[in-house]
């Protein structure tokens, strides 16, 4: 009983400031580095709040086993994996239903903008490794993967940007930390969005959502993804910046 009271007393937003000092529509610090894994065709490292995520792309390459080939386009494969030490309770290496689901929805989130028809019968592999997680790792993974795919030279109609919006302590907020996700009234709504076309390619949700909150949430999601998109573009441009001035 006392524990319940303590939780309700926790002010997730106090005078416009969240537990970590951010505003309700503010992203955590995001740093993106492009081209960090030598043997990969494209790669990126994203530090998003306390999340640390690597993404590597291999392909287009021969699609094996043969029966999984698509004669009309490249097959995109996405594997999301968490390091055993990435969270406070060690994750046993190997199969995880959560990772399988995240891999699937992430793959679909990215597929839309890739011009896969340019490479029939091939495969493009995306590997995302979460070294450290603090809520929003799937969004960080998709964000890193999109940059890695661009770095690999895969043709696409736009980058895919992801983030999560939600609710904690009665307030609608952007980009929750684990602490905010654990709020008793928490809503977690991760999305992936293509800023150039205004299309959502990933939408998931858990919690209890009231219709009246939807409009504000989805607007905030658009805003969040647009900010993430800016960071992705800047990181890609920055990769060659230093070299031009030499």
């Amino acid at each position: 009983m006392i524990l319940g009271k303590k939780n309700q007393e926790k002010k997730y937003v106090d005078k416009g400031k969240r537990l970590d000092g951010r505003k309700t529509d503010e992203l955590r610090q995001i740093d993106i580095e492009v081209g960090v894994i030598d043997q990969a065709d494209g790669s990126a490292f994203v530090q998003w709040g306390k999340n640390k995520v690597y993404a590597a792309v291999y392909g287009p390459k021969e699609c094996l086993p043969r029966h999984t080939q698509n004669p009309l386009k490249a097959v995109l494969r996405y594997k999301y994996n968490m390091a055993p030490f990435s969270v406070s309770d060690r994750i046993r290496p190997g199969y995880s239903r959560r990772s399988v689901e995240i891999s699937k929805v992430s793959r679909l989130a990215l597929e839309k903008t890739l011009v896969l028809e340019d490479f029939p019968k091939t495969a493009i592999d995306v590997f995302v490794e979460i070294i450290q997680a603090d809520a929003g790792s799937r969004a960080a993974g998709i964000t890193a993967a999109s940059v890695a795919l661009a770095d690999a030279g895969i043709p696409m109609t736009g980058l895919v940007s992801a983030c999560a919006v939600g609710k904690a302590g009665g307030h609608i907020i952007l980009d929750m930390t684990k602490e905010e996700e654990d709020a008793p009234d928490a809503i977690d709504l991760p999305v992936a969005y293509v800023p150039e076309t205004g299309e959502f390619t990933l939408v998931q949700m858990d919690g209890e959502l009231q219709r009246k909150d939807w409009d504000e949430l989805i607007e905030l999601a658009v805003k969040g993804c647009e900010m993430v998109g800016e960071k992705q573009r800047l990181a890609l441009k920055k990769k060659y910046e230093g070299e031009v001035n030499e």
Binding site: I37, K61, P93, D125
Partner: peptide, 10 residues
Amino acid sequence: NAELLPLSSP
């Protein structure tokens, strides 16, 4: 336990 992550090599 050491993981040869597919991330790091083709």
